[in-house]
């Protein structure tokens, strides 16, 4: 990437205090189009707070967030979502008893055209099922029989797949993935990593929050290291080892003076 490429999402001088605890201490953040940016940091480093601030789940006390270079303020996750920022939370946010199709459209259901939709609020189930099928096959997630299968009958990796598909499907522009492989087995983690690379190939930037260094080093283009409430380094995974990253993250090694050019 050249210097001419503008970040799609950036934040400058973000601050969030809880009483005497400073969760975000003048943090910086940049995400460039089409990249996978990993955010790593020790427990309590404030990466969750940073991600929450960027996805509307938390309102920062100070600092600015720019989407496409324009200042923007989210007061709720819904507003962030409307701006095209989707988040897959660690706890997945799927409703186990509802079907795959229902889950994909949960909170943004389609109603039938005409009076059936406007007065009787009738859902356009056919259209939603067709679109759900299309979205899942687009991501190679589907060798499907039953899109009306309850999500709870799926395995952890399959659920993660549905959650990622939902995040990537609806005209969104940025996807945040919070520990997507934390609860998964080896095989399922592999599939989710491939899914991430697939989403990236389709041009969508991903922010990956993870503690799993091998996964981070495998898929990330750049690694944002968070420590004590701020970004202390951005490194290129091709030039640093995992132990370097962990050392910087935990303060055992001084951070390289500047961030890597994008």
């Amino acid at each position: 990437m050249t210097a001419a490429v503008k970040p799609i999402l950036e934040a400058h001088g973000l601050v969030k205090r809880y009483g005497r605890v400073t969760a975000i201490d003048h943090a910086e953040f940049e995400l460039y189009p089409g990249e996978i940016l990993a955010v790593i940091g020790d427990n309590g480093a404030g990466k969750s707070s940073l991600i929450k601030a960027l996805t509307g789940a938390l309102i920062p006390d100070a600092g600015e967030i720019l989407l496409d270079g324009k200042p923007i303020q989210f007061r709720s996750p819904m507003e962030a979502r409307e701006a095209g920022i989707e988040t897959v939370y660690q706890q997945l946010a799927l409703s186990p008893a509802l079907s795959i199709a229902d889950n994909l459209f949960l909170g943004r259901e389609k109603v039938k055209p005409g009076i059936l939709g406007s007065v009787f609020r009738m859902l356009d189930r056919k259209a939603m099922q067709a679109e759900a099928r299309a979205k899942l096959s687009e991501l190679g997630l589907l060798t499907i029989q039953n899109i009306n299968q309850a999500v709870e009958t799926l395995s952890g990796g399959q659920r993660q797949g549905v959650a990622v598909a939902r995040a990537a499907a609806f005209g969104s522009r940025i996807v945040f993935l919070d520990e997507p492989t934390a609860a998964l087995g080896v095989k399922e983690s592999r599939r989710v990593l491939e899914l991430m690379l697939d989403v990236k190939r389709r041009g969508m930037p991903i922010v990956l929050i993870s503690h799993n260094m091998p996964h981070v080093f495998e898929v990330a283009d750049r690694i944002h290291i968070h420590r004590l409430g701020k970004r202390i380094a951005v490194i290129d995974p091709r030039q640093y080892s995992m132990s370097d990253a962990v050392a910087i993250m935990t303060g055992a090694m001084p951070p390289p003076g500047m961030q890597v050019a994008a």
């Binding site: 996750p77 819904m78 979502r81 988040t87 939370y89 706890q91 997945l92 946010a93 799927l94 409703s95 186990p96 008893a97 509802l98 229902d102 949960l106 909170g107 943004r108 259901e109 109603v111 009787f120 609020r121 009738m122 859902l123 189930r125």
Partner: peptide, 28 residues
Amino acid sequence: WYALNRTAWGRHVYAVGDDPDAARLSGI
């Protein structure tokens, strides 16, 4: 039956009962 199975409201009733946090994070 119609309200529960053929409207968004009904789907949301199920989602809220199923997992309130997941429903909230889905924007309900």
